[in-house]
Design a protein around this nucleic acid. Structure first.
Lengths: 333, 333
DNA sequence: AGCTCGTCTCAAACCGGTTTGGATTCAATG
DNA sequence: CATTGAATCCAAACCGGTTTGAGACGAGCT
């Protein structure tokens, strides 16, 4: 079971057995092979805890579930986490999932991670424009990587979807279909992604000389989507560009409630390509970001950071692809 | 930083400092207090890895993301995991998220956990009637707890939603509304939860002397829900009882595609109370299971198991509450 | 004074690995 | 034959804690 007992049973020292298994050259090839066979036979695996103690590392990366006051519901979070985790596992690293206790501020989780020395690096999601978590981690020199960007990106590594490009392309397409009156329904004010998506939206309207129309911001759930849509419909837009699918779901409801037909009277597009988008009435246009790809990139960047890489060398922007469905059509005549 | 340096800086031995912080009585009260203050001042935290090494435990619980060949999308998984994790954190335990690598059988993940000695206990979700993971964990004596039940529950601990009770109550209600022709759209054949829900459905129909109607089983996603509904509509049911919300979403689409009005011509009910259910057209009736509660129960059971408790003493069934919305109404005249 | 007992403290061993710095053996070299 | 050096192997130290077993000291008792 233990290195010691294995060594004793072979009449060798712990040192030799350890080095044999690690493949060092200063062990006779014949001995190396003998040790390997014996280790294999009893299915020996070095105790990871002991290895970590000597290495002085935890071989662990933490990902923090964003806390929301309400229900946490983050449908795509697992996809991302699972992808990160399975890439990390290839390097014998564990991914731990941490979340704030009820009522506890989110930053407290990061504090626990820092001074409990429970992880070699942290993954931060749902970035805000001005993010205290980023500042805290930077100050405490714990390597971290963001899913999403933030305002002060000096010295930070990130992987992000190209929200700007996605929303720009989508909005251009709506313009080309003939839409002239738009509204943007965004996520929470401070989140970077929502601002970024809004940027792409504005940019496309700008180049066509069209006015931005109402640009609202609230929570990124269905309820808030419905409320924003209700407010926006006052200015008779023919297209609602929504920062997330959940907002778009709410918008669909509001459009119907106003006696209008989504996809005919008012076009709606979201972002995330949740599986259900293909099954709403009408099916929702949306944008897709390959989270498996994002996860792998994040995991690899994390490994590099732990190895001492410069965070600024580990940034990437992943393409966002619009998916057109019946919730978008030409504006009514 | 380390116990040793703290001890030296105070002119005490490691032993005394360690015992003082642990609150042993054989340290002079005055010394104990002095040590506590000094430790506090430099914000000392014992290195968890070192503690684990002596304790011979990993202080870690693993939860395995169920692998599906397709996209993993498990919208409520995070809610459960976050709840488990935050309860475990209160006892200084970490929750690690593991998932199979692409193409790897799910059981391999459990094997890695067992012989890599990376966790003190495992959480198993998405139980199958006949579950090789359960058998494997039992055989290898790694404590585990299931979210859901399985066929051979001897020696296993579980927390599960009362799918039987929920579907029974819901079906009774449909009967009382006047429905007489039903269909059940289930999840994958081998999953316990789907079978259990079907059981509740059958039981309610049985007691009213009604026939079960078509009972289908396939994947629990929207697409498969649509296909099953299409097939079931052949026998002109007035109510579709669906094992999950995602199946129900697909069913709503199929009903509309057949030129029928959901909630008027055909009632539909799902299970999970995904946030979007309140925003479909019509809003979807569903059933709710309090996952925060489930998570806490599971975490506490896990802690007990690790402490050596008998698994069979740690089983609970959590209430499932139907939520009635416009997708359910009386049958057409 | 000699003994016992309680109180407080600490050196050393241990957990299970890795790494350092020899030690031993033997063949090749001068 | 003495030296050098390569090839092997290993004892001991280390990572940072916890626990065991014992020692030092003073008070209380005979």
């Amino acid at each position: 079971m233990s290195l010691k007992s294995l060594a004793e049973s072979m009449g060798l020292s712990k040192t030799t057995v350890s080095r044999a298994l690690a493949g060092y050259q200063d062990v006779a090839p014949e001995t190396r092979e003998r040790v390997r066979l014996a280790a294999n036979k009893i299915n020996y695996r070095p105790n990871p805890i002991a290895q970590r103690l000597t290495k002085g590392a935890t071989d662990t990366v933490a990902i923090v579930v964003p806390s929301t006051l309400q229900r946490r519901y983050e449908p795509l979070f697992v996809d991302l986490a699972a992808s990160i985790g399975s890439r990390l596992a290839e390097d014998e690293m564990d991914l731990i999932l941490t979340s704030s206790r009820p009522g506890e501020p989110e930053l407290a989780v990061y504090q626990r991670l820092v001074d409990g020395r429970r992880a070699d690096a942290v993954i931060v999601v749902r970035l805000r424009v001005n993010d205290d978590r980023v500042a805290y981690l930077k100050a405490n020199k714990l390597p971290f990587i963001c899913f999403g960007r933030t305002d002060d990106i000096a010295g930070v590594a990130y992987v992000d979807g190209d929200g700007f490009g996605g929303f720009q392309a989508a909005t251009r397409h709506l313009v080309s279909l003939g839409h002239r009156r738009f509204a943007f329904l965004g996520g929470p004010d401070g989140t970077f992604s929502s601002g970024n998506r809004k940027g792409g939206y504005c940019s496309a309207l700008n180049e066509s000389g069209l006015s931005f129309g109402p640009m609202l911001e609230a929570r990124s759930d269905e309820r808030s989507g419905a409320e924003m849509a209700r407010a926006a419909l006052g200015s008779k837009p023919t297209a609602l560009v929504c920062a997330t699918d959940r907002i778009a779901f709410g918008a669909l409801t509001a459009v119907r409630d106003a006696g209008l037909v989504p996809g005919v009277d008012v076009s709606v597009i979201g972002h995330d390509n949740l599986p259900i988008t293909a099954y709403t009435d009408p099916p929702l246009s949306t944008m897709e970001l390959d989270l498996a790809d994002v996860g792998i990139r994040m995991a690899e960047a994390t490994l590099a950071l732990i190895a001492g890489a410069n965070p600024e060398d580990h940034r990437s922007i992943v393409k966002v692809t619009p998916i057109w469905r019946a919730s978008v059509g030409p504006p009514p005549a």
